[in-house]
């Protein structure tokens, strides 16, 4: 038996980009309360790619939304680069599952949206958007509107738009959940390439086990009702080395382990 669950390594605090401890979230409705998250603690290292995996309704998206500052935590602390999160910030870019392109803007204008808000000069903006258009392979579509793009292309614009702002952390909420299998695969590869190039810290929400193993270095597996972390899994394997599929066995072992985890 390979030891999949690795002992927690003592980390240099400088290395920690995201530090969540004792996070709880309770929703109050008219005549009931609902505990979405219970005592969630997790960390993400600088430049690390971490997935949060769990069934729907386990509160994984809530964690991300709290990280983004779009929702308030009920209790617990959420720190990004040492600062407590209060409200949204450009430092934390987010890619949503639904397509959130501004449909009245062209692809380029979408990518430049945040830069324009920052008051960056048109020339500089063009340089930056050129770079990210190329990074996501949409140079030819710079003047297209959202309605002319496929789902995968829309998400690529979403990624480029977030990255153009040069965030410290990229939060991704099931960004490929609505895509067909083939597009999904190529988007995953694209995302890995981008991550290696840009060295952005990424937190990736998914319910797709393969996706989480393929993409991330570490996976937090969650349990539903109330949502809490079930296990932290080291998944830092390099499936493709020099174009060859390797470590397939370890992949399968991890997958089996996670399936078992999610069953209980």
């Amino acid at each position: 038996m390979v030891n999949i669950v690795q002992p927690k390594i003592v980390l240099d605090p400088v290395d920690i980009e995201i530090d969540i401890s004792g996070l709880s979230k309770i929703y109050h409705t008219k005549n009931s309360t609902f505990q979405a998250l219970e005592d969630v603690s997790l960390y993400v290292k600088n430049e690390e790619f971490v997935s949060i995996l769990g069934p729907s309704g386990c509160g994984k998206s809530t964690i991300l939304r709290i990280l983004a500052g779009l929702e308030e935590a009920t209790s617990g602390s959420v720190k990004v680069s040492g600062e407590e999160v209060h409200g949204p910030s450009v430092k934390r870019g987010m890619v949503f599952q639904s397509y959130t392109l501004f449909p009245w803007l062209t692809v380029r204008e979408n990518i430049e949206f945040g830069l324009k808000l920052k008051g960056i000069s048109p020339k500089e903006r063009k340089n930056i958007s050129d770079k990210y258009l190329e990074l996501v392979g949409l140079e030819r579509f710079s003047n297209s509107y959202g309605k002319e793009l496929s789902g995968g292309m829309k998400q690529r614009v979403g990624i480029a738009r977030s990255l153009a702002n040069n965030p410290e952390v990229l939060l991704m909420d099931e960004p490929f959940g609505a895509l067909d299998a083939q597009t999904k695969q190529s988007m995953q590869q694209l995302l890995l390439d981008i991550w290696k190039k840009e060295k952005t810290t990424i937190v990736f929400i998914t319910h797709d086990i393969d996706e989480s193993i393929f993409l991330s270095q570490r996976i937090y597996v969650m349990d539903a009702r109330p949502g809490k972390i079930k296990e932290e899994i080291n998944a830092d394997l390099n499936l493709f080395r020099n174009g060859e599929l390797v470590e397939v066995e370890r992949f399968m072992k991890l997958k089996k382990h996670i399936i078992k985890l999610l069953k209980h």
Binding site: L70, P88, V90, M94, L117, R161
Partner: peptide
């Protein structure tokens, strides 16, 4: 769409 608003918040 509210997501459009959320997206713009995260874009600053």
């Amino acid at each position: 769409s509210k997501d459009l608003l959320y997206a713009s918040y995260t874009l600053g």
